[in-house]
Deep mutational scan, measured.
Amino acid sequence: VTLFVALYDYEAITEDDLSFHKGEKFQILNSSEGDWWEARSLTTGETGYIPSNYVAPVD
């Protein structure tokens, strides 16, 4: 499982989006939707859509 880490803070715009803070880690559930990925936060356990350009793979 490839994990991703937030590079910036993000505040949800719609109820389907997931708010997060810089440094938060995610498991990507679906990355086939283009620039918005469905993800689960490993910090909160919540799922929602995140902007793919706000995250990077964890080394």
Rank of each mutant, 00 (worst) to 15 (best):
V1Q: 14
V1N: 12
V1T: 13
V1K: 10
V1D: 12
T2R: 08
T2K: 12
T2V: 13
T2C: 13
T2Y: 12
L3I: 15
L3K: 05
L3V: 14
F4M: 08
F4R: 03
F4V: 11
F4T: 03
V5T: 05
V5M: 09
A6N: 00
A6E: 00
A6G: 04
L7N: 03
L7Y: 03
L7T: 04
L7H: 03
L7D: 01
L7K: 05
Y8M: 09
Y8S: 07
Y8K: 08
Y8H: 08
Y8W: 13
Y8G: 05
D9L: 03
D9K: 04
D9I: 02
D9F: 04
Y10V: 02
Y10K: 03
Y10Q: 02
Y10E: 00
Y10P: 00
Y10S: 02
E11M: 11
E11W: 11
E11N: 11
E11R: 09
E11I: 14
E11S: 10
E11Q: 12
E11Y: 11
A12I: 01
A12C: 05
A12E: 02
A12G: 12
A12R: 07
A12H: 06
A12P: 05
I13A: 12
I13G: 11
I13H: 12
I13K: 14
I13Q: 15
I13L: 13
T14V: 07
T14E: 11
T14F: 15
E15S: 13
E15N: 12
E15Y: 09
E15K: 14
D16W: 15
D16Q: 14
D16L: 14
D17R: 15
D17Q: 15
D17V: 15
L18G: 01
L18Q: 03
L18A: 01
S19C: 05
S19Y: 03
S19F: 03
S19T: 09
S19V: 03
S19D: 04
F20S: 01
F20V: 04
F20K: 00
F20W: 01
F20Q: 00
H21F: 14
H21A: 12
H21Y: 13
H21P: 06
H21R: 14
K22P: 03
K22D: 02
K22M: 08
K22F: 05
G23R: 02
G23C: 06
G23Q: 02
G23M: 03
G23A: 03
G23P: 00
E24N: 06
E24Q: 06
E24D: 15
E24L: 01
E24S: 04
E24R: 01
E24F: 04
K25M: 15
K25Y: 15
K25N: 07
K25H: 12
K25Q: 11
K25F: 14
K25P: 05
F26T: 00
F26A: 00
F26P: 00
F26S: 00
Q27N: 07
Q27G: 03
Q27L: 14
Q27K: 08
Q27Y: 15
Q27D: 07
Q27E: 14
I28N: 01
I28H: 01
L29G: 04
L29F: 07
L29D: 04
L29C: 08
L29S: 05
N30D: 13
N30Q: 08
N30P: 04
N30K: 09
S31C: 13
S31N: 12
S31V: 10
S31L: 10
S31P: 09
S31Y: 13
S31D: 12
S32I: 10
S32C: 12
E33V: 12
E33I: 11
G34C: 11
G34K: 14
G34A: 14
D35R: 10
D35S: 12
D35T: 13
D35H: 13
W36R: 15
W36K: 14
W36N: 06
W37N: 01
W37Q: 03
W37Y: 09
W37L: 08
E38N: 09
E38K: 11
E38P: 06
E38C: 14
E38A: 08
E38R: 10
A39M: 05
A39T: 02
A39D: 00
A39K: 00
R40N: 04
R40M: 12
S41W: 02
S41N: 13
S41L: 07
S41F: 03
S41Y: 03
S41R: 14
S41D: 03
L42V: 09
L42F: 07
L42D: 04
L42H: 05
L42N: 04
L42T: 07
L42A: 05
T43Q: 09
T43E: 14
T43F: 10
T43M: 10
T43R: 14
T43W: 13
T43P: 02
T44R: 04
T44M: 02
T44C: 04
T44P: 01
T44S: 09
T44Y: 03
T44K: 03
T44W: 03
T44F: 03
E46N: 12
E46K: 15
E46V: 10
T47S: 09
T47V: 13
T47Y: 08
T47H: 08
T47C: 10
T47Q: 10
T47D: 04
G48C: 02
G48R: 02
G48P: 00
G48E: 00
G48M: 03
G48K: 02
G48I: 02
G48F: 03
G48L: 02
Y49T: 07
Y49M: 14
Y49L: 13
Y49V: 07
Y49S: 06
Y49R: 15
Y49W: 14
I50A: 01
I50Y: 00
I50K: 00
I50W: 01
P51L: 08
P51D: 05
P51E: 02
P51I: 04
P51G: 04
P51Q: 06
P51C: 08
S52F: 08
S52E: 03
S52G: 07
N53D: 09
N53K: 14
N53H: 12
N53C: 13
N53M: 10
Y54H: 08
Y54P: 00
Y54G: 05
Y54S: 09
Y54M: 10
Y54W: 07
V55D: 00
V55C: 05
V55N: 01
V55G: 01
A56C: 09
A56S: 09
A56G: 09
P57H: 06
V58D: 09
V58L: 13
V58E: 10
V58C: 10
D59P: 12
D59N: 12
D59L: 11
D59T: 12
D59E: 11
D59G: 12
